[in-house]
Design a protein around this nucleic acid. Structure first.
Lengths: 239, 239
DNA sequence: GAGTGGTCTAGACCACCGA
DNA sequence: CGGTGGTCTAGACCACTCC
């Protein structure tokens, strides 16, 4: 880990432990240099990351004040493995794979010099129900490009896909785009999520890419409306 | 505007104009120094912002590749004034204020050394319907602390609250936290959004703060489910 | 080996805040 | 006025990619 990340970790831990409670100021940038034996720009990088993540607000002429920050929450936020979240929140969870197709096809948009083009790409298709504390809460439909991950064992889907990609295959997840919409529950939703007619579901569609910018996974998550919650922290961009 | 922001703007404009199309590489950091007459760290800051915003992916040893990025979308994304968005998207929009209380009270969580405490704070309370292309789409309920903004003219609510805060009062918006949930439409929702019984609404609750970390506005937006869409770009955080 | 991005430094000048 | 953060520089060393 680099110096800036170490300072970030240390400050964050001290914020959580209320060494620096909400409303108080962190040490000044000059003080951080002395405290950690770093240059000012390095300390500033740590502070910038804390600000990006919503933990502090920097105020010119005054200092960096600790602000109320978002908590870890369930179940949609950034790119965190479902299993990682469940472990952090001490939630009993289980994945039930109810459809597994190791050789499926998915229409994929290709960016060519002439524009977008639709082609069919070989994927592994997996449908799972996330059972939280004994109740079915989410349906996940995953489509994983075989050109990047040739084989996804059913066992990996029952455990954690992310752990399989990162720990077993050594892939590094880079970024994802997500879209949240909502719609009336379908027959399939009602069956697997134990919903009544007229119920709604929140739908989260996401495309996940590696750090080398290869998109390799498309996911559609369908959440019970009464269990769905999403939190976001946003900064005002200068005009 | 600072140099990094200028370079950011210029690169972004060239990405939009497909001078650097999706899948191509931006000039290297060394080349950026010569092109813009800047130091490397300044160029890196511009690139880092582009990466944060989801326009490029930096690949060590190779360069900065342009990736498919999220478009401007309606109606919830970052902190952008509703009016700003509508103008950018060329949408005909109108705000109908159907409730205006210049002297209301709102329970507010106070962070004291002993923990959180609930107190009642004087606010201006405003309820509006956002009419998009002639159809009511969103209810906004705004509560603005009188300790920060003593007076909110009804006229400002009909135009743009953000424009009033920033342009008229000289306040600078810093950041906001948002939470998205969904629930069955209430009687009030059905009346103002022209919904049937059994319909659902998406609810976006947000707290907005200034750059000096003073929270001053609480907003609850209730969206027609069939019109609601939210997009997000997230990077995988290193473990 | 040449070129790329990743990290870090030491120092400079500026703008803002508060006493 | 001293202390704070905001910006920018020129240079160094490293890790990685590709030929």
């Amino acid at each position: 880990m680099n110096k800036a990340a170490l300072v970030y970790q240390d400050l964050l831990q001290k914020i959580d432990a209320e060494v620096y409670p909400i409303g108080s100021y962190l040490p000044s940038e000059h003080q951080l240099c002395e405290l950690y034996g770093i240059s000012r720009e390095t300390g500033r990088k740590a502070l910038a990351t804390l600000a990006d993540d919503g933990y502090i607000q920097k105020i010119r002429g005054k200092g960096s004040i600790v602000i109320e920050h978002r908590q870890y929450e369930f179940p949609v936020s950034g790119i965190v493995s479902y299993k990682e979240l469940a472990a952090k929140l001490h939630i009993k969870t289980e994945n039930v794979v109810y459809d597994y197709q190791p050789d499926a096809l998915l229409p994929v948009a290709d960016f060519t010099s002439l524009g977008t083009e639709l082609t069919e790409a070989p994927v592994t298709a997996i449908k799972r129900v996330r059972v939280i504390n004994g109740e079915p809460a989410i349906i996940d439909k995953d489509y994983i490009l075989k050109s990047v991950v040739p084989d996804v064992p059913k066992r990996a889907a029952e455990e954690s896909l992310y752990a399989y990609f990162e720990d077993q295959l050594g892939l590094t997840i880079g970024y994802a785009t997500k879209e949240i919409t909502m719609a009336p529950a379908t027959e399939e939703d009602r069956e697997h999520l134990a919903l009544n007619k007229g119920a709604y579901v929140a739908i989260v569609r996401s495309v996940t890419s590696l750090t080398d910018a290869r998109a390799f996974q498309y996911t559609e998550s369908r959440h019970r409306a009464d269990r769905f919650s999403f939190r976001d922290f946003a900064r005002r961009t200068k005009k």
